[in-house]
Structure formats: structure tokens, C-alpha cells
């Protein structure tokens, strides 16, 4: 069974997903970081595929992308690093990346490789729903990959319904109209948006991302969704870390508890 489906069948609240950029801070940190995220008690690992032009990301993740590329990270390299990840990692793994490097690799070859190494889902922020339905849904399904779409406070109710219909896995609720890492804290306006979406009774679980950084914001987000995603705040923690394993574990535990 797909690990994302499995997770949400058994856990409906306070699901924590951690994003980091593959090949950052050092090229060979990818797998050790995944192992530390798992042992710290998070629920989903989102591995960012670095790209030269990440238009939905703020300075923190832009930087980590550039550093990873300078370190020599590429999609091929990433697949090499993750080839045997299922020997040590049991959490659901989601790859998050922009479309262009994946298209150059070849979408079918990419999906096939994902299934082979045990990837469960994809988040491709610049893949619009229509293009997904027209060009890629079939191949995602063939290789049992869950596809996550983003919604934002500007997404209309009609469009949220459409996205819910065509999503499987979970929906990524961008907490404010912003790029990543632009906000801290959660405002009343955002809570009104969380409640509006909550009242729609969507079939897919919802994880809230953008602006989640600590126990307080994680708890607030979990109140209105099934959990939350932390990206920029995590990247900042590991950027200067001298001991990845213990820093990751103490950070994630401080968020969960």
C-alpha cells in the first residue's frame, strides 16, 4: 500500500511533514537527513529537487537550491543517493521539484524510477492541474505516485473542489498568498481561510504550509488541518548545524511537543 494512504488512514491529526533540499548543506547529507527526520518522529519527508529558478520560493530555499546545485546535486545524483533508502527509511517520501529538470529526465522514466526506489508522492508547484490531467495523470497513476496540488487563500471554492476531485494523497494549503519563508506566525485572516476550507469537508487530508516554524504555529495549523509542513525554518536550522542528527532531532521534537 502507498505509504501516504497508509499514514492518513492511521493518523488524522498533527501530521508533520518536513521539507529539505537534496544535496544541502553538503552533497552527501541527503540520506542522513532523511534518517534523522524519521528518528525524530516526523511523519512525511519531502525531498526538494534543486532547481536554478525556483519561482515559488523565498530567499532561504533559493539559497539552499543554489548551494545544492553548486555541490553537484542533480536528479540523477539524487536517485543514486536514494537507491537503497528503503533499507533505512520507512516514512512516506515525497519529491518536490519544479517541472523542467523532471521533463528533461523524462516524465515516464522519472516516475518509474520513483516507484522503483520507493517514492510515494510528488509535489510539482509549477505543474497546473489542466496540464497534469492532459499529460501526466496516467503515468503518475501507473507508478502509484500520489500527486499533491497547492491551494492558496485566493483559490476559489469551485477550484478547490476541482483540485480535491483530482488530488490523491493530500492537499497542500499555502497559508497565505506568499512565497516560501516570507511569513512567520498565523493571523486571524489566515485562520478564517483555514476554517472556510475546513468547512468544505474535502475528501483529501490537508497539510498547511508556509509560515510554520515552531510548536505554536504547528499546533495552530494542526487545529484547522490534518497537520503542517515545515520548510524554510528547517533549512535555516540545518544550514549552520555542526551535528545534523542531534540538531534535527531536537528541533523536530521541540515542534511536536
Amino acid at each position: 500500500m502507498n505509504r501516504i494512504d497508509n499514514l492518513f488512514q492511521t493518523k488524522k491529526e498533527r501530521v508533520l511533514s518536513i521539507y529539505f533540499t537534496a544535496g544541502f548543506p553538503k552533497l552527501k547529507d541527503t540520506l542522513p537527513i532523511m534518517q534523522a527526520i524519521e528518528s525524530a518522529g516526523a511523519d512525511i519527508i519531502e525531498v526538494g529537487v534543486p532547481y536554478s529558478d525556483p519561482i515559488a520560493d523565498g530567499p532561504t530555499i533559493q539559497d539552499s537550491n543554489q548551494i545544492a546545485l553548486d555541490n553537484g546535486m542533480s536528479l540523477k545524483k539524487l536517485f543514486e543517493q536514494l537507491q537503497d533508502m528503503r533499507q533505512t527509511v520507512s516514512l512516506p517520501v515525497v519529491l518536490m521539484g519544479y517541472l523542467n529538470p523532471i521533463i528533461q529526465y523524462g516524465m515516464e522514466a522519472f516516475c518509474k524510477k520513483c516507484q522503483e526506489i520507493g517514492v510515494d508522492g510528488l509535489i510539482l508547484p509549477d505543474l497546473p492541474m489542466q496540464q497534469y490531467l492532459d499529460e501526466f495523470k496516467e503515468v503518475f497513476d501507473k507508478y502509484d505516485l500520489r500527486n499533491t496540488f497547492l491551494i492558496s487563500p485566493q483559490t476559489s471554492e469551485k477550484r478547490i473542489r476541482e483540485i480535491d476531485t483530482h488530488s490523491n494523497g493530500f492537499i497542500y494549503m499555502v497559508s497565505a498568498h506568499s512565497i516560501t519563508g516570507a511569513r512567520t506566525g498565523i493571523s486571524e485572516e489566515q485562520i478564517a481561510y483555514f476554517q472556510r476550507v475546513e468547512a468544505m469537508n474535502l475528501k483529501n487530508p490537508r497539510l498547511i504550509g508556509f509560515g510554520i516554524s515552531d510548536s505554536e504555529t504547528f499546533t495552530t495549523a494542526s487545529k484547522y488541518g490534518n497537520g503542517a509542513i515545515i520548510g524554510s525554518a528547517f533549512i535555516k536550522k540545518i544550514k549552520e548545524s555542526q551535528n545534523l542528527k542531534s540538531d534535527i532531532e531536537s528541533y523536530i521534537q521541540s515542534v511536536i511537543h
Binding site: 529558478d53 542533480s74 540523477k76 517541472l99 523542467n100 529538470p101 523532471i102 529526465y105 509549477d126
Partner: peptide
């Protein structure tokens, strides 16, 4: 250039084999 996606459209694009611009 080869076919790729930049700034929201599919077009001819100067990029590495790995799809970095």
C-alpha cells in the same frame, strides 16, 4: 537551446542536460 519550461511557458531554453537554466 532545447525545449523546456521557464517563467511559465514551454519554449526553447538554454539549459544543462539536467534541466538547470
Amino acid at each position: 537551446g532545447t525545449s523546456g519550461i521557464l517563467h511559465g511557458s514551454k519554449t526553447l531554453l538554454m539549459q544543462t542536460e539536467d534541466g538547470q537554466v
